[in-house]
Design a protein around this nucleic acid. Structure first.
Lengths: 202, 202, 202, 202
DNA sequence: AATGAATGAGACTTCATTCAT
DNA sequence: TATGAATGAAGTCTCATTCAT
């Protein structure tokens, strides 16, 4: 089942017998795509009109599908957050060591974040996207915590690391540096993870 | 010479022979203080009116002293950037080791950033504050680079670290996590710096 | 013949030889009932969507049956206007005196108006419901005029009262006072009718 | 002291030492005049933009002077409400009888209402102008009550009349009939007042 | 030089109406 | 025929910036 299929199935579950009209489905997807593109370009605070134009629909259509801006933002990122969350246990089972699994999972997370420039603002609490913020944390922090625990239990990393804080740190490193190619979020995150291996705090 | 004096002197330098009226000087300083306070509270995109109110002046006065928002933002942070830049060589000369000097200098930088909540946005290129962005980098990256070189030459840290990138990384870690007290930027930066000591990338 | 039957018959008359499909008939009646309910709740300017939802039909169905809002409003109130109009002659024939008949008929009219909160706006000319406005007046003013004449001829009331004006006055008194229970439209209308008995204007 | 003078003096009292700029005063008055005109034409729900255009000012100017629509509506009618309220005791002292004073005062009230077509909507509770509604009632009902009491005490009218209800009734009669010249609110109110003299309810 | 009133572009949101399904 | 998704005009309100005083 693809990510898209999952979304369709879920919609079907929510309203049982009423399948969405084909054009409405197309519009919803067009909106998600358009919003993702505009968020990258102008951030999640981009004018609603811009998103509508990008999707080729009227403004009212956005409000029909996503009554609040947060609804739209959540929808845009939900699939990827889910996929990331679900990858945690899988990696832990497959990798050579807990620390390797942690590193691979964090790479997944970073991959997600660095391609979503507008996301950084969303991850800051207090910006009116608290529901979204909570969703991200609720879903991902436990996954990270489990990976951390395993690595700690294996004696591979320091024991004084908090998953929430680490997620924030990684998220911040992925805020990036505009389009400055000299900044590589992945490399910086690598440095952070390397720091975890230290036997004592610096 | 105090930081305040320096600012005034510089303003004088810009417009050569015309000494500012005493009340104009007072207003300019009041504006800098007010803007700094408002930036912390509401970010650098805070309404001009709020800054004017905080300073107790009319809005026109802001535009007279700082024609663009970037002018104001630069002015607000210039002093502290200067102080931070000048501390680099001093610390290098005084500290026990280049790595220790680097750590101390980065602590200074972090201290600066974490108390300036609105600053994070400013350090992102493309936000209309490019002049400010350049100023920060032009002034601080060389200082950081010199400290890094010294530590590398002393064999204390990895040799593949770029000063610009490190500054971005630290800046990002200082973006914070809203007011979530569970996130400690200093601890995360510590982790990053610890990572520098690793002999190989993670 | 019931009021409901009459409405259906009339609809059939309008489109001569084409009998309406049973479901279309059901929809039309559901719409009339729903609109009446919504008009009471939210006035005749209530969103079309609310009426459609109340009736359990799509919005397009409303536009099919009642191309303009006025068409719907007229249809909603037509039955009751008819019933009121037809009661006039009956009351005149049955009551003890013309003045008594007038009072009873006005009571009928008031009963009608006070339970139709949204109606007041409709009775104002210029609100885009002029056709409806005309219908009300065309149908009811002659009835009222006949009752007035009879009472005047019997020497029971002043002779300088115009039926149209009186209808407007009564309609206005029935506008009410929001939900303020201290206002009783019937009592005020009673005062107005009492004023009719005066031998001279106040 | 004219009504206008009073307004100016009051403004001066409110903010002590800060006299309003001459142009601001002009604008405020222009807005009141424009709003009054537009209210007559289009009702108190008229678009803000229309009022601004009528006054020849920007929309923001309206919001500066009158943050909410209710503020504007209250301001538009305040002077006249005040004048009407203050006339009550004067008329009572001067007229030949309490009933005559009542009639004269009601004439004043009617004069006020019939030239303010948009006002009717405002006097209905629940329309979002409750503060204004309250203001009207708080100010005028006691005046009316005193006139009624005097007339009742003099044995000139029925004793079972409530001032609030009477005000509502008069207000409703003044709602008018669009521009239909055949309806004369004053005549209808006269009928109502005549009804008061009846010894028993009709 | 300082003030803050005025401006008006721009963002948001609602809802009557149309039209693809 | 019925549906309700889509449209976009129209209205509200905010705030950066200008400019009369």
């Amino acid at each position: 089942m693809t990510i898209r299929d999952e979304g369709v199935e879920q919609a079907a579950r929510q309203k049982a017998a009423r399948p969405k009209r084909a054009d409405a489905q197309r519009n919803e997807q067009a909106l998600l795509d358009a919003a993702a593109a505009v968020f990258v370009r102008s951030g999640v605070e981009a004018p609603v009109r811009d998103i509508a134009a990008e999707a080729g629909v009227g403004m009212g259509t956005i409000y029909r599908h996503f009554p609040t801006r947060a609804d739209l933002v959540v929808a845009v990122y939900r699939h990827q957050v889910e996929a990331c969350a679900e990858a945690g246990p899988v990696l832990l089972a497959q990798a050579d060591s807990p620390h390797a699994a942690l590193g691979q999972w964090i790479n997944l997370f970073v991959d997600f974040l660095v391609t979503k420039h507008g996301l950084a603002a969303v991850l800051q609490p207090g910006g009116g996207f608290d529901a979204l913020h909570s969703y991200f944390l609720d879903r991902l922090v436990p996954v990270c915590a489990r990976l951390l625990s395993a690595a700690i239990d294996a004696g591979e990393i320091r024991a004084d690391i908090d998953a929430l804080e680490l997620m924030y740190g990684i998220g911040n490193l992925c805020v990036g540096a505009g389009n400055d190619p000299r900044y590589d979020a992945r490399r910086m995150v690598g440095l952070l993870i390397a720091g975890l291996r230290q036997s004592r705090p610096a």
